[in-house]
Amino acid sequence: MEFHPPIVERRKDELIEIANFPDKWQPEAVEQAKAELVKRSVSVKEQEKTAEKLIRKYQAEQKCEMKKRAMVSYDPIELFFMFLRLPATILWGWSLKSEGYAKLHKQRLWVIASALLFYMGILLFFFLYSAPKAEKARLKLIEEQDISEWEKNYFGEAKDSMQIKKSSR
């Protein structure tokens, strides 16, 4: 298999990296790098020394990356849209802290808490203030209806209660 640049043309440090960190490279590249190191007469001790340097370099890069991630934050527009689309904010993005985004994680939790309080406040306002007003208006409308025609049809012509008492004496 051909690689670009070819394994044969790579520096010694690159070959050691390929040979000693096989999980980052294709198996064919690892085999070619090992063969090239043998061809160049690079000792195992030298490979181990270089591999240790590379490990320290990777660890330093990782530490630096984690420090950068810890300082990343959302801009206000992103926070606003997270606030508006609360269900999506709640369902996704829970791996921020484990990925090193401590500030993003805290901001996300604050947005979720404030959005929940806001939406609960709206619901409480609706149920405690608007709903009783609507019910009062409905009851007033019912009381204002004239049902005398319905009463006549249902009960018939009712005599006045005073006339009934006089005739029964």
Rank of each mutant, 00 (worst) to 15 (best):
W92D: 06
Q59A: 13
L84Q: 03
L91Q: 06
R85H: 09
D75L: 15
A70W: 07
P87Y: 00
K68C: 13
Y74A: 02
R69K: 09
L79C: 10
L86H: 07
M82T: 01
Q59I: 15
L84K: 04
D75T: 05
Y74W: 09
A88M: 08
K67F: 14
P87D: 00
G93W: 00
I77C: 11
L91C: 09
E65A: 14
P76K: 07
P76V: 05
P87M: 00
P87I: 00
Q59M: 15
A60T: 09
K68E: 10
R85G: 06
E61P: 09
L86N: 00
Y74T: 02
M82S: 02
S73I: 12
F81D: 04
D75H: 15
M71N: 15
R69V: 06
Y74P: 07
R69Q: 06
K63D: 09
I77N: 07
T89Q: 01
D75F: 13
K63A: 10
I77W: 11
E61R: 12
E78T: 07
T89K: 01
E65Q: 10
R85Y: 06
P76S: 05
I77R: 12
P87H: 01
S73K: 12
Q62E: 13
K68A: 13
P76L: 04
G93K: 00
K63W: 05
L84P: 05
P76E: 02
K67A: 12
M82F: 05
D75A: 10
E65P: 04
K67L: 15
F83S: 00
R85M: 06
W92C: 13
C64I: 12
I77S: 10
M71E: 14
P87E: 01
Q59V: 13
C64P: 05
R85N: 10
L91K: 09
M71W: 07
L86I: 02
K68I: 12
M71G: 12
Q62T: 12
D75Q: 14
E78V: 05
E61W: 08
E65M: 10
K63R: 11
R85A: 04
L91M: 09
L91E: 03
F83C: 03
S73M: 09
I77H: 11
K67S: 13
M66K: 11
C64K: 13
F80E: 02
F81N: 06
M82V: 03
R69H: 04
R85T: 04
P76H: 04
L86D: 00
E78Q: 08
I77Q: 09
I77V: 13
A88F: 14
Q62P: 11
D75P: 15
A70I: 03
E78W: 06
L86P: 02
K67I: 09
L91D: 03
W92F: 15
F81R: 05
M82Q: 05
K68V: 11
